[in-house]
């Protein structure tokens, strides 16, 4: 019995650490979505599909054009950033005056488009980079190196965004718009330009997430569905547009999924996470860190 408990605890610790590592990437995804929501007041339902396109971008750059991983990553980030700006310019901008739910549904249409575009253009085969990173072993626990790398890169990405938002003029303008949409236009800030920059920034974050996720997961046209819904739930749980809340919620969710997966199947981890989300919505409708009215 004693030895059983010891083994069990090691697994528990391993699952918890893996949860934290998973949380890093989820937090990165949530940050991008929150940025878009906080500034433009639009939910990109197709956010995870942008990540999927980015993952395909990585795959083709590395496998077909033979670029090294570290050269392909900036290109992919740039590609998805351009996609994000295009999405805003073509779909969101004409709908800015319409009901918010129309914007949500339009991005739902984009989700269909991107998914089926990938099906048509790349086929439905599972593909991977073919890069196998070693597994770290530490005190009888196993961590995949790629997860650790993603976690660190996600943290760096978030710090860069934080610096951009606090230290540059554009970043300050973005934060100001998130606080008051109408006044900023009167203050001489070109809201259209800021929206476009924000969309590109959100896209760039999706691109970064794609570069990291492609190390852990195989790419296929429907890969977005496996982490897209979770990302929305994290954002809503943290309070849409609340960066810190999204960050906390990402790690909370990752732990639930990871620990749920330890005790049972991975699907039950997701079921638990979803159920937790619905319960939390009732206890704290405005988000984890919101004050109750």
């Amino acid at each position: 019995m004693q030895s059983f408990l010891e083994i069990f605890d090691i697994y528990l610790l391993e699952a918890m650490v893996n949860g934290i590592l998973l949380g890093g990437v989820l937090a990165l995804l949530a940050l991008g979505l929150n940025l878009i929501f906080g500034v433009i007041d639009v939910t990109w339902i197709c956010y995870a599909e942008l990540v999927m396109i980015g993952m395909y971008g990585m795959y083709y750059l590395v496998q077909y054009y033979g670029l090294p991983y570290y050269a392909a990553a900036p290109l992919t980030i740039l590609l998805v950033a351009v996609l994000g700006a295009l999405l805003h310019y073509l779909v969101i901008a004409p709908l800015l005056g319409a009901a918010p739910i129309n914007q949500l549904l339009a991005t739902g249409g984009v989700l269909f488009v991107l998914q089926s575009f990938a099906t048509v253009a790349f086929g439905i085969d599972f593909r991977n980079l073919g890069i196998r990173l070693p597994v770290l072993q530490f005190a009888e626990m196993h961590f995949s190196y790629s997860r650790l790398l993603s976690f660190l890169a996600a943290l760096v990405g978030m710090v860069v965004i934080y610096l951009f938002m606090t230290r540059t003029y554009t970043g300050t303008a973005i934060r100001a718009i998130a606080q008051d949409r109408q006044i900023m236009a009167l203050m001489g800030v070109d809201t259209k330009r800021i929206y476009l920059v924000t969309s590109a920034l959100g896209g760039a974050l999706a691109g970064l997430a794609a570069c990291l996720l492609v190390l852990q997961y195989d790419v296929h046209p429907f890969v977005g569905l496996s982490f897209g819904p979770i990302t929305f739930l994290i954002c809503v749980l943290g309070g849409l547009g609340n960066f810190v809340g999204g960050f906390v919620a990402a790690f909370l969710f990752a732990e639930i999924i990871s620990l749920g997966g330890l005790f049972s199947d991975l699907e039950w981890g997701y079921v638990l996470a979803f159920a937790f989300f619905i319960v939390m919505m009732f206890i704290r409708p405005g988000g984890l860190l919101a004050r109750r009215q």
Partner: peptide, 21 residues
């Protein structure tokens, strides 16, 4: 045609919401 129907759906959905809500 696998995938094409959803591609057309998606484009139509976006176009409809913008032009024919």
């Amino acid at each position: 045609a696998v995938g094409w129907d959803n591609l057309v759906y998606g484009v139509l959905l976006v176009v409809f919401i913008i032009f024919l809500p």
